[in-house]
Nucleic acid binder design. Structure first.
Lengths: 132, 132
DNA sequence: CATGCTGACTTGGGATGCCCAAGTTAGCGT
DNA sequence: ACGCTAACTTGGGCATCCCAAGTCAGCATG
């Protein structure tokens, strides 16, 4: 369900603090019919939560916020961002980075072995689970 | 360039040791014209390497192998797999897991602070880089 | 209470991408 | 010369996406 064209980009923007329908169209350029559909599937998958809000002088609006489930996609986003920054850099360089909320210092995404040792991607493999 | 429908699934299968054109069609069910195109873009992006091989009694064939750049997507794949296993489990349960090559013991993907402390996704935020 | 305004959709028509089935190509063995 | 097979290529149909325009629901203003 995350594999459709705009889905992860919407999640990324949501993680960056965007909440409103027009925030997403403005920053992504996604067409509005597709955005409506993707927001609905993300809400029903429990990644986003739809809230009503009301700023004075205007009517009720909706905003979209990452749930705890959605926040857990931060790991995926940060790993993907790190890969893109390293292997497919833009001329302007990266425009965002991931940091610790408390200290504001940058963080990394890494593999850890059971005894807490950092592993490189090449030291990791995928293996089938065999049940009897 | 990783965002198209079958791209990450092909990378995942390549990480699981699949190498041949027919391996990918058999396990993914991707149509052959699309597979041809995705393999070509992955090769030209430096994620896969195309090799010729020859088993006796048959003609030259091609096989596709992850490059070092491609192997570094393991972090993304493992993070995504962990999220899916937790939040969108199938009835049958997970069919693969990520493990250390040397010890065969399972590994995890986590955020690390600069002083090597494990951080939860909720303790991490994305911030803009401001250049002067 | 009529009118304008705006954010969040909804709709219609065309373009792009994907699926499926069938066909093609290039060696190798017989 | 012929069959065999993995790796494509091609053509037609269908699903998804894009874009522009329209709708709808309040809130403010006159």
């Amino acid at each position: 369900m995350l594999g459709e064209k705009w889905t992860m980009l919407i999640v990324r923007d949501a993680a960056a603090g965007k909440t409103r329908f027009s925030d997403f169209t403005d920053s992504l350029g996604v067409s509005t019919d597709v955005l409506t559909d993707r927001l609905a599937t993300l809400v029903s998958a429990g990644v986003l939560e739809r809230r009503s809000y009301r700023s004075d002088g205007s009517r009720m609006r909706f905003s979209y916020h990452l749930t705890e489930t959605g926040v857990e996609l931060n790991t995926v986003l940060a790993a993907l961002t790190a890969w893109g920054d390293k292997h497919r850099p833009t001329e302007a360089g990266p425009s965002t980075f991931y940091r610790e909320v408390a200290s504001k210092r940058p963080v990394t995404v890494t593999f850890l072995s059971e005894d807490g040792i950092i592993l490189e991607p090449a030291q990791v493999e995928v293996a089938p689970i065999t049940r009897r």
